[in-house]
Nucleic acid binder design. Structure first.
Length: 666
DNA sequence: TCAATCCGTATC
DNA sequence: ATACGGATTGAC
């Protein structure tokens, strides 16, 4: 070999080693060479820079032997660590010595290839780690449950699909037919009072089951879960679905999970973590009331169950049903892009289904109790049957708005909420920090600002005194009622805590609607309308409804037009460059770290807003917040950049940053 | 010249 | 956390 050749070799880039057979064992009897079995393992480590697969040697004497998807113990960085085998083979790209699997915890394959792929995609989308996502996707093991598998089997024949409940929607029966024939339509569904959405979804799950495919149904909370569980049982009979929720006891939850993982049951009803349920041959994913913030995971990587389900539907070619009385801008964007179809009833049906809504200002007249508008007083006196009064909770985070027309005060630079006393005592944007010393209202030109009035919570005693012929019950806070007693009851409930009542309410009252609009996150309007529609949906047919507030801001509610409202909301988000039209990443960390991040260059057309101080409770360390905003197409690149950042930090033993992609609120 | 020790880095 | 490799230090 000449000197020149050697130099060339030295200058050449590091050669990528081909996968090699590392070690060989010789069978003593035959003398044949037996290759060493290698397990590829997803190791449970919180460190982003170690978020990849590692290979381990499988000792031949290990009992039981590993299978793909099973839980194992391995020695990782010197300590015993949990992991999942994601594959078995005979080659590795690792150049060093392989450590052996320490133990196969159980031969139960709890992590399917589908869920692994989903978890990887989800982790990347939210700049998080596979481990963090797998912790949500696979519940903790319960050995006793594994040993004694016991889910009741259905004891009757599969019923036929009954599309009666879907007749209110012209496309409804066709949708069920498509599911039953094995195709995968995608629908954003505007539900209506008068038909139980849980029964309608149960029929959709049944149609899907009759095509040989499974369904995941997500609902926001335990109260809905109970109702939907009963509805699914009424349609499907016993043993055809399981409930999977974080509220269950560990053994109960794991029993449901195992029944699904083993393919014994293929319809899953649950809260947000059920989005990962390992249903075999997935045919349909459904999410009810996707605007509920309970779908947003409060821990890293702060993912959203609706987005997980949509991702999953694409990966597994499943049908999609995003339903609610109200409609989110996110759901509307699926329609706007043509990805999903909007399913609504005709106008005449919608008018018949929703209660007729009168809007009254807050004027109080003689005869009514203190602070109770006389139109509300009169309507309650007139009502023949149960009455629901939705009372906004006090203590909402309030932002500033116009003194004269109540338009929220927004930042001229980024459309974020203005607040007093962020940095110093000047008026400044809570997102980007831009100061607005001379604010004027873009709607009416007024220069006067006000903090929205936080209304007095009317006490049950006041109502009881005003309506002596009615039993007054309350629901809210720690005491949430699922079902109100029948009869001439008057129910006072905070938004989201409204109980159902047998036969539906004769009257629904929405008190002080402007209070709900005084919050300052990006979903003010959407969230307020969602809660109003959900309350109105508890009314019986031809019920009355009264809203206390400004008729101009309640037009969409009066017209009972959730899709129209969602379209407007989406247009506003587009104009303000907010999700789901744009993608944002909200990063929180100590001020010096955030300052350095603010000066970096970020992928594509990413804008940097801030930093601004995060409002902190006493005793908490002070942090700054940076908002990175980017066109949707650059979302993956931004997430990758943030993941790289987290990796670099964890490799340097620095604490992780709090990174939230498209958070529900910030 | 060699071994003990320190430091940074990878973690199979 | 622990283990390893390379660099550094210090005794002979």
């Amino acid at each position: 070999m000449t000197t020149g050749d050697q130099l060339e070799l030295l200058a050449a880039p590091e050669p990528v080693p081909p996968p090699v057979l590392l070690e060989e064992g010789v069978d003593e009897r035959s003398g044949e060479v037996a290759p060493v079995r290698i397990a590829r393992v997803a190791v449970d480590t919180p460190l982003p820079h170690l978020d990849r697969l590692f290979d381990y040697a499988v000792p031949p004497e290990l009992d039981p032997q590993p299978v793909p998807g099973c839980r194992v113990k391995v020695r990782f960085a010197g300590r015993a660590t949990d992991g999942y085998v994601v594959g078995l083979g005979e080659t590795t790209a690792h150049e060093g010595r392989l450590a052996p699997l320490t133990k196969v915890v159980s031969a139960e394959p709890v992590l399917s290839a589908e869920v692994l792929g989903l978890a990887r995609e989800v982790a990347d989308r939210w700049a998080g780690t596979l481990s963090d996502v797998l912790r949500l996707a696979v519940p903790p093991r319960q050995a006793k449950v594994e040993a004694r598998p016991s889910v009741p089997r259905p004891d009757d024949d599969l019923p036929g699909v009954d599309d009666e409940v879907w007749h209110l929607w012209p496309d409804g029966p066709g949708f069920l037919g498509a599911l039953e024939s094995g195709t995968s339509p995608r629908v954003v569904w505007e539900a209506l009072p008068l038909r139980d959405p849980a029964v309608a979804v149960a029929q959709a799950a049944l149609a899907t089951l009759r095509s040989g495919r499974g369904t995941v149904v997500c609902v926001p909370d335990a109260r809905e879960l109970d109702h939907w569980d009963a509805a699914l049982t009424s349609v499907l009979g016993h043993g055809r679905h399981v409930v999977l929720s974080s509220g269950q006891k560990p053994a109960e939850r794991y029993r449901s999970f195992l029944a699904v993982a083993r393919g014994e049951v293929s319809i899953v009803l649950g809260t947000r973590a059920a989005a990962f349920a390992p249903v075999h041959d997935l045919g349909l994913v459904t999410v009810w009331d996707d605007g509920d913030d309970l779908y947003a995971e409060p821990r890293a990587p702060y993912l959203h169950a609706r987005e997980v389900l949509l991702t999953r539907a694409v990966r597994e070619d499943a049908a999609v049903l995003v339903g609610g009385y109200a409609r989110t801008a996110e759901a509307q964007s699926l329609v706007g892009s043509g990805w999903a179809r909007s399913m609504r009833a005709e106008a005449v049906t919608r008018r018949r289904a929703w209660p007729r809504l009168d809007v009254t200002d807050g004027s109080v007249a003689g005869g009514a109790p203190a602070r109770l508008p006389h139109q509300v007083f009169a309507a309650v006196r007139r009502a023949d049957g149960p009455v629901l009064v939705q009372v906004p909770r006090r203590g909402y985070r309030t932002s500033l708005s116009c003194q004269d027309c109540r338009t929220p005060a927004r930042c001229a630079a980024c459309d974020g909420p203005l607040a007093q006393g962020g940095r110093g005592a000047t008026l400044a944007c809570r997102w980007c920090g831009t100061e607005a010393p001379r604010w004027t209202c873009p709607t009416c030109g007024s220069a006067r600002l006000r903090a929205p009035v936080v209304g007095q919570l009317r006490t049950a005693e006041e109502y009881a005194a005003a309506f002596p012929d009615r039993a007054v019950v309350t629901s809210g806070g720690a005491d949430v009622l699922a079902e109100a007693p029948p009869g001439d009851v008057l129910v006072l409930a905070t938004p989201g805590a409204e109980p159902r009542v047998e036969g539906g309410y004769a009257l629904v009252v929405l008190m002080d609607t402007w209070l709900a609009l005084g919050r300052d996150d990006l979903r003010v309007g959407e969230e307020a309308h969602r809660r109003w529609f959900n309350a109105l949906a508890l009314a019986r047919e031809r019920a009355a409804a009264v809203a206390v507030g400004d008729p101009a801001t309640l037009q969409g509610l009066v017209r009972a037009d959730p899709a129209g409202l969602a379209e407007r909301e989406l247009a506003e988000r587009a104009e303000a460059h907010l999700p789901p039209v744009a993608r944002v990443a909200v990063v929180e960390a100590p001020a010096d770290v955030v300052a350095e991040l603010a000066s970096r260059s970020w992928p594509g057309a990413t804008e940097v807003l801030g930093p601004v101080p995060v409002p902190t409770r006493p005793g908490e360390p002070e942090h700054d917040r940076l908002v990175l905003r980017t066109p949707r197409r650059d979302g993956p690149a931004l997430a990758a950049a943030l993941k790289d950042l987290q990796s670099a930090r964890s490799a340097a033993k620095l604490p992780p940053l709090r990174v939230r992609i498209d958070p529900h609120a910030f």
